[in-house]
Design a protein around this nucleic acid. Structure first.
Lengths: 353, 353
DNA sequence: AGCGCTATAGTAACCCGTTACTGTAGCGGT
DNA sequence: ACCGCTACAGTAACGGGTTACTATAGCGCT
């Protein structure tokens, strides 16, 4: 009985966790077929399987409560049906809507998404990308425009995962989906000019925020087209949220406002600024008119309601995911997909007369 | 030379994709050590590795640009360092903040999260759970209270993944983190009673929404404690968002309001209702006072600002993830973790005199 | 010289679904 | 009878990191 099996056949070696989970081999044994047959039934591709086998397999799957292991599947197919989505700050409803759009299309196509929040921090983003690549996501969708992350190189990773950028980012050399912010800025300004305003302030976000910069560029262009001077004193910077805008506007009020209308870099800024104006005893829009950007859900229901540029966040997110799917399918996609923003005239600009 | 190698030795069989990716074996070859040594250097657990080997391995890893494959890691360790998070509707900032809290703690602990949005739909949730289990997440965090999903059984899956519930849900027999909504409802009502109101309406969400039901329960208890009758006519139902609340309130206004104060199931409902009241020509808070729940970001900056119960969404999300980590570490955790809500008195209730 | 330890390495068997290859019936055609 | 096909089914080699087990060298003691 001097067995000559290769070296020394171990019993429960390697990692050797019991696991308890039923695998495809258990199903095969239970159904009295081979693992290949089980796999084929589950894959349900064209491969011919007799009805008898199929039925036996499905019965065993149900009886044993078999749940296929996507890790193993991913390992052998080199596909995880998962994409990573990196967002700067989910507390901003704009990004929540972008994520929602991505998720919607992903779910419709059987894809899962791993979500990362960077807090506008470059180091976090790099950590997240590394993590996502380790997890072998099929692709990565990066949200957050431009110089939001200043040091970004042209390529984030040479890895095999395709990237899609949501937001304008010239430094990032990947297919991008973004709104025409310059045009939106122009349209918003034009609306105020048409209402007769000549001294129009722009309360925008940090300089590294390229969506904001584009909106400002449109604002300047519109002023120029209408023979109005751009006064640097009317370009006021604050951060992305209500509080800072409120404070800036309050200071400004005490120093003598010097303008009759105010564009805000986004609706949250508009909200803070408008609250400040009201608290200063100004009437909106009679004494000071406001226009925001984004059309967050609440902007329609505040009083006065906020005139705003509707940036199609959810649609952009959805389109980004659609692009990703096409890239994964091997199709060529446009390097730029630009959405137009719509002006929603409401009470805060006084344009409803 | 009649080789007696087992059967017939194939060359590139199995799936046989080239892959091109560098693996741990390439690193081992390059560094002149075994795969075990590479794995140990990367794991950096206690196992002794000589400095010389460690250096060689790290050099090769850098030179070859090696990215470990978490699928393979997960497969052999039966651990993915990933949890699934299921949320009913990300467009509600409340849930966005919950997700943010979860993400924050997850990131701090090297965990990733797979995000799913159900749109308050039970079938979607079941699909998502199945998907997450296939992906072998280490655990699942379910957000969305109670009978939000009516048919939920006591156990969602017998699988090995632990669940944590964010929100009160008696039908779901898992560790839960939720706010004391009954108490919050009581506190909010008490605030209005203290201000002298005797006819107080409650504009709440759908009946299946248990957080809302708990708030209503607190409202009723408070009325009773203060000798006020509960008038079913003052319990008005609408859905979760602004628009429906606006419409209900407008109808009501035309029919004769019949109350001097209004609690809203959440801030979005409050926003819609308040806009309706203002549009009806009522003064807030003089003619009609409002109190909301959630303390979404905009509630502080609308005018009048919204008195609301601050539900600590982000902290609850964070706590839920912390619980999950402890469960994964094998610790026992409390089956109920209850957070208290704080009353934030602002302009809409008239409590700021 | 011999024994026991510790420090370090290496080998190869896992984890589990997929799929390239290799059969083997059964059937029509000649 | 024999060839060629099609329809089905089974075997086993992947993919890539982990780790149980085995092995060797170096060192302190007796």
């Amino acid at each position: 009985m001097d067995e000559t099996a290769p070296p020394t056949r171990r019993t429960g070696s390697g990692r050797g966790r019991a696991s308890g989970r039923v695998g495809i081999r258990d199903v095969a044994r239970d159904a009295g077929v081979s693992v290949a047959t089980v796999s084929r039934v589950l894959a349900d591709d064209g491969y011919p399987v007799s009805e008898a086998s199929r039925r036996k397999v499905l019965e065993s799957v149900a009886r044993l409560n078999f749940v296929p292991n996507d890790l193993a599947r991913g390992l052998s197919q080199d596909r995880t049906n998962t994409v990573g989505v990196i967002v700067p700050n989910l507390a901003n409803l704009y990004y929540a809507r972008v994520l929602l759009g991505v998720e919607e299309v992903a779910a419709q196509n059987g894809m899962s998404i791993i979500f990362c929040n960077t807090n506008h921090n470059l180091a976090n983003r790099e950590r997240d990308i590394k993590l996502l690549l380790q997890k072998r996501v099929d692709g990565i969708i990066i949200c957050g425009s431009g110089t939001d992350y200043e040091n970004s190189a042209g390529r984030l990773a040479d890895g095999p995962a395709p990237f899609v950028v949501l937001g304008r980012n010239e430094k990032l050399d990947y297919p991008a989906v973004h709104a025409d912010n310059r045009r939106a800025g122009y349209t918003a300004t034009r609306h105020l000019v048409d209402l007769g305003h000549t001294r129009i302030a722009f309360l925008t976000g940090p300089e590294r925020w390229s969506d904001g910069n584009d909106r400002v560029a449109g604002y300047k262009a519109c002023l120029a087209d209408h023979g109005l001077d751009f006064d640097p004193d009317l370009l006021i910077r604050c951060d992305f949220a209500e509080q800072d805008a409120y404070e800036r506007m309050t200071q400004r009020g005490h120093a003598g406002m010097g303008f009759s209308a105010c564009l805000a870099g986004n609706d949250r800024i508009a909200l803070g600024a408008m609250a400040a104006a009201i608290d200063l005893g100004l009437r909106v829009p009679e004494d000071l008119a406001f226009v925001g950007f984004d059309n967050i859900a609440t902007s329609l229901y505040m009083r006065p309601s906020l005139t705003t540029m509707d940036m199609p966040a959810q649609r952009m997110g959805a389109e980004g995911m659609r692009l990703m799917l096409r890239i994964l399918a091997g199709e060529a996609v446009p390097s730029r997909t630009v959405f137009d923003a719509a002006l929603l005239v409401r009470q805060s600009s006084g344009g409803l007369r």
